[in-house]
């Protein structure tokens, strides 16, 4: 069995061999690891890797797993699953790009109106979360098509606060 696992931007294949009851060999790149494991509970696994014991803690977040090892956290994603989801989500209208908060937040101010011409980097919406203000900026030069929020609205990551249409598509250099 082979997994392709992504951490940050690095995707590496993990080959699983000799899968037995709570024991297997994992091959990552040129390295082989003898792994045995005991599941302590839903979130804790005791691993023995090449004879060295370590407790790892896992939380499945749906789009990947948070793995904590000795005070360090890794977000590990299944690259094959990610690709499937990506092709499913991609659709038309990719000229519209999103102005979306990085975290659940409350809208403090909307700095633009429909029809406004905005420059890349121009402030469009100011949101606040946990008493900290964040300015969301236009991702490129364009025209505001629609403002979807008002002051005081609660917004979530993925919510599109302002629709901006690119004015001039950047010319691609064809080789």
């Amino acid at each position: 069995m082979e997994y392709r696992l992504k951490i940050n931007e690095e995707t590496l294949p993990v080959e699983v061999e000799n899968d037995e009851e709570e024991k297997f060999t994992a091959v990552i790149g040129k390295n082989a690891f003898d792994v045995s494991y005991t599941t302590v509970n839903d979130h804790c696994i005791h691993l023995s890797v090449n004879g060295q014991g370590v407790n790892v803690y896992v939380s499945d977040q749906g789009d990947g797993k948070i793995i904590a090892i000795k005070g360090k956290s890794y977000f590990v994603q299944d690259a094959d699953l990610l690709e499937q989801n990506k092709t499913r989500k991609k659709g038309p209208g990719s000229d519209l790009t999103e102005v979306t908060p990085p975290m659940p937040a409350v809208v403090i101010a909307v700095a633009v109106g429909e029809g406004d011409v905005v420059e890349k980097g121009q402030a469009v919406v100011i949101v606040s979360a946990m008493k900290m203000e964040t300015t969301l900026v236009a991702p490129f030069n364009g025209t505001v098509q629609k403002v979807n929020v008002a002051e005081g609205d609660k917004v979530m990551p993925g919510d599109i606060l302002v629709d901006i249409e690119k004015n001039e598509p950047e010319e691609e250099i064809l080789s």
Binding site: L5, V14, A26, L47, D60, K65, I67, K72, Y74, V76
Partner: peptide
């Protein structure tokens, strides 16, 4: 963040998949 235990994290992912 230090990535020195990335291999271990990948192994942990695989183990968790097997368990679930």
């Amino acid at each position: 963040p230090d990535m020195s235990d990335a291999d271990l994290a990948r192994i942990a992912f695989v183990v968790d998949e097997m368990c679930s």
